[in-house]
Amino acid sequence: MTTQREIAERLGLPVHPPKTEVFDLVAGTNTDPKGHVRTVSRYRREPFGLYLARPLPGQPTIAALESWLLPSLGLRVTRWYWRPGHERDLDFYLDLVDIRTGDAQWRTEDHYLDLEVRQGRDVHLLDVDEFVLAVRSAQLDSDTAEGAMRRACAALEGITRCGYDLSKWLRDNGIELSWEGQPLQGPVPEPRSLPPSE
Rank of each mutant, 00 (worst) to 15 (best):
G12D: 09
I62N: 04
I7K: 04
Q59S: 12
L25F: 08
H36A: 14
R44F: 05
W68M: 03
N30K: 10
R45Y: 05
V22P: 00
L13R: 06
H16L: 05
L50Y: 03
A63P: 14
V37P: 02
V37E: 08
A53R: 12
D32N: 15
L65S: 10
I7F: 12
R45F: 05
V22C: 13
G35S: 09
T31A: 06
R45P: 08
L25M: 15
P17M: 01
T29A: 10
R38H: 12
V22K: 02
T31R: 10
T39S: 11
Q59W: 05
L65W: 03
E21V: 00
P47F: 04
P57D: 15
P55I: 01
H16E: 07
L25N: 08
P18T: 03
L11V: 04
P18N: 08
P18D: 04
P14V: 11
G12C: 13
R42D: 10
P18M: 02
T39V: 12
E6Y: 01
E46K: 13
P55K: 06
P18G: 02
P14Q: 11
V37K: 00
E21H: 01
I62V: 15
R45S: 15
G28Q: 13
V40G: 08
A63R: 14
T29S: 14
T31W: 02
V22N: 01
P57C: 09
A63L: 14
A63D: 15
D24V: 09
E6I: 01
G49V: 14
I7G: 03
A8M: 02
P14G: 14
P55D: 14
S67W: 01
V15W: 12
D32R: 00
L11R: 11
V22G: 05
P55M: 07
L13G: 07
L56P: 00
V37C: 07
W68D: 00
I62A: 13
A27M: 07
Q59I: 00
F23P: 00
P17Y: 02
D32S: 09
I62E: 09
D32G: 07
R38G: 01
P14C: 12
N30Q: 14
T20K: 06
I7M: 14
V40S: 10
L11H: 12
F23R: 01
L50V: 12
E21N: 09
L13C: 08
D24A: 14
Y43K: 11
L25G: 07
V26F: 06
R38F: 00
V37M: 03
L56V: 03
L56I: 00
T39C: 02
P18V: 05
L65N: 02
T20M: 04
R45D: 10
P14L: 07
P14E: 11
G12S: 13
